[in-house]
Design a protein around this nucleic acid. Structure first.
Length: 1050
RNA sequence: GGGCUUAUAGCUCAGAAGGUUAGAGCGCGCGCCUGAUAAGCGCGAGGUCCCUGGUUCGAUUCCAGGUAAGCCCA
């Protein structure tokens, strides 16, 4: 006996019971334990931040990971699932600053770095409990108790080790990086903060004449919107491929891009005296505008810049390496001097001898413009309105500003990274050579350092005396070199800042530089640092590198996907992962990005509490591919619930209900497959085709196609297999066919449970446990400990599947015709006529005729060749065949066929096997295979026509048919009354039919046996008993009084 | 400004080595069933396959250029 399936339940409630079962029986742990000697499948968890509650996009990522891991487990792999937490970084610092009302570094230092760091530690785990609960509730199996945490000493030590490897390979170096910088807060801003503060402002827009050396009265016309950077100018860039001109203007010769003439001079074009390509101008020298000090490097000449545009400005771009990344890169490339005339306070440094020395740069703009004008170098000064970033905290404009920074020379390993990228399977594929490939191609050195507090400290110490630098690679080394390092040293600021080392070059004192590192580097070391490698867990690490599978959102292309690859390449010269599933963003139902300020976010908990985790999961798997952007529709979850889960649940409860009622032992005496009914063999063939499909899709990370196929299968199972087999499950005599039906449905349900287990782990497990575990003490306790099904190809009968599809198509047309006729299905009809079928299609229908008879309730199936009696027939060329053969002629043939006498041509085709047609002067002989016979609806029949066949109903009713229809009507009414009277389905009744209608009496007489057996009537009485339930009925318009009453079984 | 992606029914999505009647589910309408009831089933109406050019006998599909949306970068 199976456990009764109650109809009073909610999926959400049942899921909680399943969760408890998993917990109490350590199913997750068992699923790893049982495969600990099996081939590993390495999953690497991208660590989330727990300083904000999880949202739906986190659910998406987690269930994708979960489905893959569950599938791999069921296919016999050891899938270790270590969780991780990301903890360091600016977002945390800002949250804490906000909380403490700190607005700049000075206030922070006053508050105390140690206090601040402690607050950060609290902050990062603020929502850990939420994360834990959500993770468990959605059924994401991951071990949170052994999670790696990027703030732990062990983790940091491993990261230090990684940095030391880079250091030893001379890949860690100090340089400059241009960053958005707030002079008031004294800090650089991360890009997402910059994005917070864009405002529209009017800045000066000036065109300046740069006098050329060795060319009288000839000037470069240079555009800038930041006059304050001009004193730091060291070069001018042009586009090599762009066209430039020299023009005469008020006695001066100006050089500018040809395309910019119109915007600068309007319609009064000056005279062009010379044409150049950008490349012609390279290396021309010009006079510095200002005295920017002495440099050893050559400067103030024209260079090439691929970022130069001619759509605005003059096509000549002023280069000041301290104030723009492009400028800085050009400076590096051409070895230009690095001129930095602005201090960290945003003011000109004392070395600037002009009047604006000590002025805040933006205030100096007018003075500089005035100066240039006074010297006759200003061509034009206007205003320029554009989006410019402001500090989101203090609202001051940000300056792009080169700061000293530490870098990893990733450009040195770019080739290897690109090569390793080729070895990674990307889903979707285009990421490889698209977004990720492009990113690698344009790789620049990784700006690693942050002038902040909460992060992995950069372990570089510098000697106060001799400037010697050393990178520490472990705690042991720190203790060895350091003076009085506490035994339990914590590797965070400010604790490590207090550690001073002895310089081994000069015996001076070494202090750590103040920077911490980019938190992306932390998580990028996860493959190594999660094991505290190489200090511990050597074997574990070696077994787990590279990872087989990672999955995160697409925005990690330049984040985690990159940082893993970079560190993996740097350390081991191997890709860090083999398969990467990129997830797209989830938009709110209004098509907008989900954000708290818009108020369009969805709280996963409302879904989990109402519809449940399986429904949410199923919607996310099947709604759209994970790499396609999706709008999150709550209705979609209801649909998943009703459409898929409801259907599966119904088939399951149908099975359990009747298996219990009929006391069938599904494990005994299952007839061999060849002895089962056609429909059994059909559904089993479908099942094994499905097993292959799901396996293939899962191996290829098509996490959408697999469950969609399962859904289509369950639809067929419910709406065709069960619907057409229903009466085999009840009422029927015990015997081989009944046994076959039960065995088949049982096998199908158990297999579906296993196939669906990675996607709907809760419902799948419930089905499995009730269907399998309850009968078999030796069976694994849970579906998640069971083996994933493998297909038996011998059970796949492709012909049967296509035949069934075809038959169902014909039946569907029959339904349409019946619908149109208005005769209800209960009324049997004499025959249907099918036309336009090929010989093999007729055979198919004959083989599967019982389906047509039963479903359409017709006595006979008739085939006809006379299409035009029922449908309008046209002939069309088979374009696919004739197109390549006759080319242009095919259109003429089509025209000729359309205008010719169709029936005559068709007769010709039938007698000769070919036809002759004249089209635009030529005669064509067309074979049968080159012609499509098409049918169209003709009014006035109960006929359903598709492109090439039709189904016609015979609507004439004989007296026999009327009687039979009436008998069915009687059964129907009696059944309804049984239900209304609340009888049990197995109750026997006594029946009274009192009628003045001859038709009803006759039908009852003729079909007495049928009616009695259908309604479980054991006695027919002349007068109803006093407890009988009676109703006056109209049976197809005929009056009758029906009474039913339960019969006591003695 | 650059790179990548997407655009098919009211909504969510399939699909087509280029072939002349483009599919599903939901929603909507009509009907059926009630011995699967969080029901279920059938049928129907909904489409300039984003636009413009090109290639081709034939383009929603291929190519080019746009437009719109999204992400990343500058």
């Amino acid at each position: 006996m199976f456990e009764e399936v109650s109809s009073q339940f909610t999926f959400a409630e049942k899921e909680k019971q399943t969760l408890a079962f998993w917990r109490e029986n350590d199913i997750f742990e068992k699923s790893m334990e049982m495969y600990k000697d099996a081939p590993p499948f390495v999953f690497l968890e991208g660590p989330p931040f727990a300083n904000a509650p999880p949202g739906v996009h986190h659910v998406l990522a987690r269930i994708m990971k979960d489905a893959v891991c569950r599938y791999k487990t069921m296919t016999g792999h050891y899938v270790h699932r270590k969780a991780g937490w990301d903890t360091h970084g600016l977002p945390v610092e800002y949250q804490v600053e906000k909380q403490l009302n700190i607005t700049n570094k000075a206030e922070l230092e006053a508050y105390g770095v140690q206090n601040f760091i402690e607050k950060c530690k609290e902050n990062v785990f603020q929502y850990e409990q939420d994360w834990r609960e959500m993770t468990e509730r959605i059924g994401f199996w991951v071990n949170l108790n052994e999670a790696y945490i990027t703030l732990s000493n062990d983790y940091i030590e491993s990261v230090w080790w990684v940095l030391r490897q880079a250091w030893d390979k001379k890949l860690l170096y100090q340089g400059h990086k241009v960053q958005p910088y707030c002079y008031r807060c004294g800090t650089t801003l991360a890009s997402h903060e910059v994005a917070l503060g864009y405002q529209e402002v009017a800045d000066p827009s000036i065109f300046v004449r740069f006098p050329l050396k060795n060319r009288e009265r000839t000037y470069l016309l240079v555009w800038t919107t930041t006059p304050w950077t001009l004193p730091s100018n060291v070069a001018v860039a042009v586009g090599e491929e762009d066209d430039y001109v020299a023009v005469e203007d008020n006695g001066k010769t100006l050089i500018l891009a040809k395309e910019c003439l119109k915007s600068l001079f309007g319609d009064e074009f000056p005279q062009i005296v010379e044409n150049y390509k950008g490349s012609d101008l390279l290396n021309w020298d010009y006079e510095p505008l200002f005295d920017s000090g002495q440099h050893t490097e050559k400067s103030h000449y024209i260079v090439s810049g691929d970022f130069v545009t001619t759509t605005e400005g003059s096509g000549l771009v002023h280069i000041a390496p301290a104030f723009g990344q492009d400028d800085y890169d050009i400076g590096q490339k051409h070895n230009l001097p690095f001129v930095q005339l602005v201090g960290g306070d945003g003011k000109f440094v004392p070395e600037v001898k002009d009047v604006w020395c000590g002025e805040y740069v933006k205030d100096a703009d007018p003075m500089i413009i005035e100066n240039l004008d006074g010297r006759g170098l200003l061509f034009k000064a206007t205003e320029y309105t554009h989006q410019y970033p402001f500090c989101w905290r203090c609202d001051n404009p940000l300056l792009y500003y080169a700061r000293e920074s530490w870098f990893i020379r990733t450009t040195a390993i770019r080739d290897q990274m690109q090569q390793h990228n080729q070895e990674i399977n990307w889903y979707p594929e285009h990421i490889k050579d698209g977004r990720f490939g492009n990113w690698l191609e344009n790789n620049i050195d990784w700006g690693l350092s942050r002038e902040r507090y909460w992060g992995t400290p950069l372990p570089v110490w510098i000697c106060d005396d001799c400037g010697h630098q050393h990178c520490v690679g472990s705690i042991a080394e720190l203790k060895e070199l350091g003076r009085d390092v506490p035994d339990d040293i914590e590797l965070h600021r400010p604790y490590v800042d207090d550690v001073v080392l002895n310089c081994d070059k000069c015996s001076g004192t070494m202090h750590r530089i103040q920077d911490v590192i980019d938190c992306w580097f932390d998580s990028g070391c996860a493959h190594t640092a999660q094991w505290h490698y190489p200090f511990e867990n050597k074997e574990l690490f070696e077994r787990a590198y590279p990872a087989d599978f990672i999955s995160e959102a697409i925005d990690q292309t330049r984040g985690w996907f990159y940082s893993l690859l970079a560190t993996g390449t740097l350390l081991y010269d191997k890709p860090a992962y083999k398969n990467c599933l990129c997830l797209e963003l989830i938009l709110a139902s209004d098509g907008q990005k989900m954000s708290k300020s818009r108020g369009n976010t969805v709280d996963p908990w409302t879904i989990l509490d109402n519809q449940g985790a399986d429904a949410m999961r199923w919607y996310m798997f099947t709604g759209s591919p994970p790499w396609a952007q999706r709008t999150f529709q709550l209705e979609g979850i209801d649909e998943a619930l009703k459409k898929f889960m409801g259907t599966l649940q119904n088939v399951y409860s149908f099975f359990v209900m009747y298996a219990n009622l009929e006391q069938v032992d599904v494990l005994e005496d299952a007839p061999s497959i060849s002895e089962r009914a056609t429909i059994d063999r059909w559904i089993l063939s479908r099942l094994h085709t499905l097993i292959n499909k799901v396996g293939d899709d899962m191996e290829n990370y098509h996490l959408t196609n697999a469950p969609r196929a399962i859904e289509a299968f369950v639809e067929d199972l419910s709406n065709w297999y069960v619907r057409r087999s229903r009466d085999r499950f009840w009422g029927a005599e015990a015997g081989q066919d009944k046994q076959a039906a039960y065995a088949t449905l049982y096998e199908v349900l158990v297999t579906v449970a296993k196939l669906a287990a990675p996607f709907i782990p809760f419902l799948a497990d419930e089905l499995y446990r009730n269907l399998v575990v309850s009968l078999d003490d030796d069976a694994p306790l849970s579906v998640h400990l069971a083996e994933f099904p493998t297909a038996d190809d011998a059970l796949i009968d492709g012909t049967l599947e296509t035949d069934m599809t075809f038959t169902r198509d014909v039946i569907s047309m029959g339904h349409a015709a019946r619908n149109r006729s208005g005769i209800k299905t209960r009324q049997p009809l004499a025959d249907i006529t099918l036309g336009g079928l090929s010989e093999s299609e007729k055979e198919t229908i004959n083989r599967l005729s019982s389906f047509v008879h039963d479903e359409l309730n017709v006595k006979e199936i008739v085939f006809t060749e006379e299409l035009d009696t029922f449908a309008q027939v046209t002939l069309k060329p088979n374009f696919k065949v004739l197109g390549p053969k006759y080319g242009k002629g095919v259109q003429a043939i089509a025209k000729a066929l359309a205008t010719a006498d169709t029936m005559q041509l068709k007769a010709e085709l039938e007698t000769n096997g070919s036809l002759e047609i004249k089209a635009s002067g030529e005669t064509y002989i067309l074979e049968e295979s080159e012609i499509d016979v098409q049918t169209q609806n003709r009014e006035g029949f109960f006929v359903e026509v598709d492109a090439r066949k039709f189904v016609a109903l015979s609507t004439e009713l004989t007296h026999e048919l009327v009687l039979e229809g009436m008998a069915r009507e009687l059964v129907n009414k009696i059944q309804n009354m049984r239900k209304d009277a609340d009888f049990n389905v197995s109750d026997r009744i006594s029946l009274c039919v009192a009628t003045s209608s001859e038709l009803v009496s006759e039908a009852f007489e003729v079909h007495r046996e049928y009616i009695l057996s259908e309604t479980l009537t054991t006695e027919v009485v002349e007068l109803p008993g006093k407890n009988a339930f009676s109703l006056d009925q109209k049976l197809n318009g005929e009056p009758a009084m029906l009474s039913v009453e339960q019969v006591r079984v003695i």
